[in-house]
Design a protein around this nucleic acid. Structure first.
Length: 459
RNA sequence: GUGGAUGUAGUUCAGUAGGUUAGAACGUCGGAUUGUGGUUCCGAAGGUCGUGGGUUCGAGCCCCAUCUUCCACCCCA
């Protein structure tokens, strides 16, 4: 019974070339996280299902990968249970575990579970894969890596500001031009208060979110199909028509929302955050976007989303503040903020924009030509010397034709070739060929280290 | 989860109304050049046409199923 090997939909293998690029992404992000004082943790790929369920909204629960119990998972069920065919009830009895859906919820669980070991505010980063049973599309995978940074146990808006700086640093490093969109859930709650539909924040924000895509008219009809009254919808009108720059918008908002405590709080928070942003040297565009909603249920304050200006691939980074995520695990009153970078989408953007050029440094710098058994000893000595000087180097394993060895170097973009055959050995010299110019230099073997220092290390 | 497209050498794609041995370009390998790559010239290898059924004298092409990828919705990194 042999079938063609395959991998599940929405998952991928990564080649050596791809992994070099991916590792470059992870390393760069990690470096910047550390620069800001964040420290790594990891959590298991699988969590107990109750940890995950109900944290991401109805849609999120559907997209959770559940893990069937091992052994006879039917043993606890009666025929009657099966006959009822209530899949959600059944699944919670035959699946105790699930694959994690994001890194924020497992992090909240971690914080509660380890609260006695943690010093607050706790700044951590976490780079691990997550899984979603979504239908795959471009830039949308069922297994993908998130790179999360969160700080938990601090209400300060300085944290939000710091995250904006991290975003700016990371995309500056990658040379991706981006827009950072910011909003605040408290303002959205204030709007819901204002139109007299406090309980419907999520429906309202999801609908508002689509304004750019489907237009005001369709947003309204969607809201009315969700059961909002006509007067509620028409009193929404002023919010959809705000104009001017960020401070104009915030000013008109505070006129509209002055009666809503939540709304005013949201406005003050955003004013403070934008005050920090305005006096800082950001290279990204930052804008207040009242249509930004984000579906994740647990956000309560700032919400942040980052988009590439040049590639349309959804958001490449997103996050926000959650005031009570740890509350559901029994630890009240601890607020956190965090963002998540989508490594796979960043990869797609960098690839599409051909921005991986400066990765040459990650492959071999020197290739030593193999002339055969008699010359090998001499070559190995050179190789040891190079590696001793931390020069990435390799000896071609076979005594293939020079042409073959040079084109190997060419395809691997190896910049320097050392040729040491019979002639060189007899004179105790080496020949170095510089691939970019074709130029060749002959020198005594003991001059190699100074060549390395002056030419190779410098470039 | 709903609706719609797609699938042909390693890669990007041709493939005419269903008719012999399925083509090109690029890449790979070999040679021109026995110690000199990236240019050029010559040559070669490489495909059970996504998979499984069906219609037909005959299927890459038509029908059905299935998988993949992609697009829209939903949602999101």
């Amino acid at each position: 019974m042999s079938s063609k090997p395959s991998i599940p939909k929405g998952t991928r293998d990564f080649s050596t070339e791809e992994m070099l690029k991916r590792e470059y992404i992870f390393e760069s992000i990690k470096q910047i996280f550390r620069l800001y004082g964040y420290q790594p943790i990891e959590t298991p790929a699988i969590e107990n299902l109750p940890t995950l369920l109900g944290k991401y909204g109805e849609e999120g629960d559907k997209l959770l990968f559940r893990i069937l119990n091992s052994g006879d998972f039917l043993s606890s069920l009666t025929d009657d249970d099966l006959a009822k065919r209530e899949y959600s009830k059944l699944s919670s009895r035959i699946c105790e575990k699930g694959l994690r859906y994001d890194l924020t919820v497992p992090f909240a669980r971690y914080v509660v579970q380890h609260r006695d070991e943690i010093v607050f505010p706790f700044k951590r980063y976490q780079i691990q894969p997550v899984w979603r049973a979504d239908r795959p599309q471009k830039g949308r995978y069922r297994e993908f890596f998130q790179c999360d940074v969160d700080v938990i146990g601090s209400d300060s808006l300085l944290n939000e500001y710091e995250l904006i700086r991290i975003i700016d640093d990371i995309f500056k490093k990658f040379r991706i031009s981006t827009v950072i969109k910011i909003n605040n859930r408290k303002i959205l709650a204030g709007i819901a208060d204002y139109i007299g539909e406090s309980g419907r924040i999520i429906d309202i924000t999801i609908a508002i979110d689509k304004i750019d895509k489907i237009g005001i008219g369709n947003v309204k009809s969607e809201l009315s199909s969700k059961g909002l009254s006509d007067e509620a919808i028409s009193s929404l009108q002023p919010f959809l028509q705000l104009s001017g720059d960020t401070s104009d918008k915030l000013a008109s908002l505070s006129k509209l929302l002055f009666e809503s405590e939540a709304g005013m709080k949201g406005i003050t928070e955003l004013q403070a955050l934008f005050a920090y942003i305005e006096s800082s040297p950001l290279t990204c565009d930052v804008e207040l976007d009242l249509t930004l909603a984000r579906g994740l249920n647990y956000y309560t304050g700032a919400i942040i989303e980052v988009k590439s200006k040049d590639v349309s691939i959804g958001s490449i980074c997103g996050g926000g503040r959650y005031d009570n995520l740890t509350g559901v695990f029994g630890m009240e009153g601890v607020s956190g903020v965090g963002i998540s970078f989508g490594a796979d989408r960043i990869y797609d953007v960098l690839n599409q924009l051909d921005l991986f050029n400066d990765l040459k440094g990650s492959s071999t710098e020197v290739l030593i030509v193999n002339f055969g058994e008699n010359e090998t000893k001499y070559a190995l000595k050179i190789l040891d010397q190079l590696r001793g000087m931390e020069v990435k180097s390799e000896l071609f394993p076979d005594a293939a034709k020079l042409k073959k060895q040079l084109s190997y170097a060419d395809s691997k973009k190896i910049p320097y070739i050392i040729i040491a055959g019979e002639e060189e050995i007899s004179k105790n010299t080496i020949t170095i060929k510089i691939m970019s110019s074709g130029e060749q230099k002959s020198m005594p073997l003991d001059k190699l280290s100074s060549f390395v220092n002056e030419e190779i290390k410098r470039s």
